[in-house]
């Protein structure tokens, strides 16, 4: 569905050359749900804007839905849906008007556009808001409308640029419900960007980690964690020194023994049984499973969570 080769984009900012995307080669198969994860300024949006023809690549090639983005941008636009960071609807326009206009922009007749608008209003719980202006909608309603606008022409490939940024947890969960359901029903390939770790973890089957304009990791969440980060087991015991001798690789911190390893959840029960046989009393056992943030930390030496909070 998507095939890029050494895709690059540089900007000029006050005389300086900024390399926003520096050589991304990516392949996305039909039906995949891919999250592009990275801190602000990592190049996520620039990548997405090139794939959606909103930005011309400086170098490299990209085929989207079987069409080259530079040779036939109109062909790409016809085949993809795009939900940008901002709100799609004009603020003074009415919800239904905008959905019908969107259909007309894709060459639908007014009647067909109106039918489709009705379907989408139903599917995205926008019924009753037909005559409201976009400005009067709540944040969650507005975002659902953005998704509806992106789906008007039944694209086989949907791009979502930070679809849930700034939304409250409930509205986020609600939007995700809609996206996953529509994806199932329409067999849509979805590519989205996010800087929410938990979201990428929970929703995407595949996570592409981008930093400084490059892909630094690309795999499923579990595989990423297994490959780039370790789980941590912390035991509270009376005699940490004894435990340290019994368990390879353990370190002592006060009355705690700390152990870094892969697959901590499977190791922990056996470890506890072994310590019991050796006569060690364990007061408490903590398991800290590796998170995507640990993955990012391991790959870049920086925490994504902190950067996200600072931004």
């Amino acid at each position: 569905m998507i095939l890029t080769e050494d895709l690059r984009r540089t900007f000029r900012r006050r005389g300086a050359v900024v390399e926003a995307v520096r050589g991304i080669s990516l392949r996305v198969e039909r039906g995949e749900l891919v999250a592009v994860l990275g801190p602000n300024g990592a190049g996520k949006s620039t990548l997405l804007r090139m794939l959606t023809t909103l930005l011309r690549p400086t170098a490299g090639t990209a085929q989207v839905a079987g069409v080259d983005v530079v040779a036939d941008p109109a062909g790409v636009r016809q085949r993809i849906g795009y939900v940008g960071q901002g709100n799609a609807g004009g603020h003074h326009h009415r919800v239904l008007d905008e959905l019908v206009t969107q259909g007309a922009l894709y060459g639908r007749t007014r009647a067909a556009a109106r039918r489709r608008a009705g379907e989408l209003m139903e599917a995205l719980e926008l019924r009753g808001l037909e005559r409201r202006t976009v400005a009067s909608l709540s944040g969650g309603q507005r975002r659902r409308m953005d998704v509806a606008i992106g789906l008007v022409h039944r694209p086989g490939l949907l791009f979502l640029d930070e679809p849930t940024t700034g939304m409250d947890p409930q509205a986020r969960a609600n939007l995700w419900e809609h996206i996953t359901r529509l994806r199932r029903e329409m067999d849509t390939t979805v590519v989205l960007t996010t800087h929410y770790l938990d979201e990428a973890d929970a929703m995407a089957e595949r996570i592409v980690v981008v930093d400084h304009g490059e892909v630094i990791a690309d795999a499923g969440s579990a595989a990423l964690r297994a490959r780039h980060a370790e789980d941590r087991i912390v035991l509270e015991v009376d005699e940490p020194a004894t435990v340290k001798d019994l368990v390879d690789g353990a370190t002592v911190v006060g009355f705690r023994v700390e152990l870094r390893l892969a697959d901590g959840a499977r190791v922990l029960p056996g470890l506890l049984a072994r310590l019991e046989r050796a006569g060690v009393t364990v007061h408490a056992a903590h398991l800290h499973e590796a998170s995507l943030d640990d993955v990012f930390l391991a790959l870049t030496g920086r925490s994504l969570r902190e950067e996200g909070a600072a931004a």
Binding site: Q63, G66, R79, T101, G107
Partner: peptide, 28 residues
Amino acid sequence: MSVTVVTRVEPDTVRPGFVRDTVTIFLR
């Protein structure tokens, strides 16, 4: 990469063009 046709062309689609698009933008 296999070239897959991803848009279902609907029977209600009219041929797009400058004049039609101008009318759509104007009406919006």
